[in-house]
C-alpha cells in the first residue's frame, strides 16, 4: 500500500487515488504539421523508467484534484509531490 501526501488533503492511502501515468508530456504545437512518427511518439511512447518516475495522480475519492509525484518505480517510495503546473523539482535518492 502506497501512502500519498495529497497537496490539498494530506496523507492518504493509495486506494483513494488514481494514477494518470507519465507527467510533463508536451503536445506538439502544430499537430497538422508534425510527422506521423512525432505524433505517435506524443501519443504512445513513454519513459517507463526503472527508478525515478515523474507521474500524475488524482485524489479521486477526496478533493478530485490532479497533482504531480516523483516516485521510485522499484521501491514505490515517493520523493516529491508538486503542483500540476510546476516543473519537476530536483530530488536526491531513488535509483535514477
Amino acid at each position: 500500500m502506497i501512502r500519498i501526501e495529497c497537496p490539498w488533503c494530506g496523507l492518504r492511502s493509495e486506494s483513494e487515488f488514481t494514477c494518470g501515468g507519465q507527467s510533463h508530456i508536451v503536445r506538439p504545437e502544430n499537430p497538422a504539421e508534425v510527422s506521423d512518427e512525432i505524433w505517435a511518439e506524443y501519443l504512445y511512447q513513454r519513459e517507463n523508467p526503472r527508478g525515478l518516475h515523474r507521474e500524475r495522480w488524482r485524489h479521486t475519492y477526496g478533493c478530485r484534484q490532479w497533482f504531480n509525484v516523483i516516485r521510485d518505480t522499484v521501491t514505490h517510495e515517493i520523493l516529491a509531490v508538486y503542483h500540476m503546473t510546476d516543473s519537476a523539482p530536483e530530488v536526491s535518492g531513488g535509483r535514477e
Partner: peptide, 13 residues
C-alpha cells in the same frame, strides 16, 4: 496493479 512498477510483489489494494 494500477500504476507503473518494477517491484515484483504487487500492492495490497
Amino acid at each position: 496493479d494500477t500504476h507503473p512498477s518494477y517491484g515484483q510483489r504487487g500492492n495490497l489494494p
